[in-house]
């Protein structure tokens, strides 16, 4: 068999810094989908790992493992393999997703140009997760920290999502430059 070389999505793409925000590609890491069979309770099996099956829009973590809600009766385990024998449909989706990090002050203002839900800190605290459209691209957005979002999209759409995000950062940078340069101040901000 031919020697296959694993390549990350957007391989070689360096971080982009604009408008005080840094957009970068997350390194490849395990992503496992866990969808409990109807009526099954995974609490004891997950508790052994220090995890709990997350409520809609929530996540929890234990060490390097992180369990994030991603849909009705579905969560993604990030950062490691799930235990054997879970009463759930378990699939390895590591190669199917591309992840980006958007960090810096005002990341929610950048994302507000692409997503409809309110992602400000008061409405979307650290550890909350939302599944929504990034413009037209299905995305899972996790608030990693007060000034950091992790955005995951289908790997097939990684390049489009990256282009959308970079364009938003460029628009924000252009607006900031226009305001600072004393050009006729725009009537609307944001």
């Amino acid at each position: 068999m031919a020697e296959l070389i694993a390549k990350a999505a957007l391989d070689g793409q360096g971080p982009v810094t604009r408008a005080g925000l840094v957009l970068s590609v997350l390194p490849p890491a395990p992503v496992w989908s866990i969808a409990p069979f109807p009526g099954e309770d995974l609490t004891p099996a997950l508790a052994a790992l220090g995890l709990d099956f997350p409520a809609p829009g929530r996540s929890n973590r234990a060490g390097d493992l992180r369990l994030i809600w991603t849909g009705r009766d579905q969560a993604f385990l990030l950062g490691g393999r799930p235990p054997e024998g879970l009463a759930a449909a378990v699939t390895d989706q590591s190669g199917a997703w591309a992840g980006f990090s958007l960090s810096g002050i005002g990341g929610e203002a950048a994302l507000a140009r692409l997503v409809t839900p309110d992602l400000r800190l008061a409405a979307f605290p650290v550890g909350h997760v939302v599944r929504t459209g990034l413009n037209h691209i299905p995305a899972i957005i996790l608030r990693e920290g007060e000034t950091e979002f992790h955005i995951r999209v289908f790997r097939s759409m990684a390049r489009s999502a990256w282009a959308e995000l970079v364009e938003v950062l460029e628009h924000l940078a252009a607006r900031a430059a226009a305001v600072q340069g004393g050009a006729s101040a725009p009537a609307r901000t944001g």
Binding site: P56, P117, R131, T132
Partner: peptide, 11 residues
Amino acid sequence: PLCGPRDRREF
């Protein structure tokens, strides 16, 4: 019921 209020375009 799971995600809260969302724009019609998501459906």
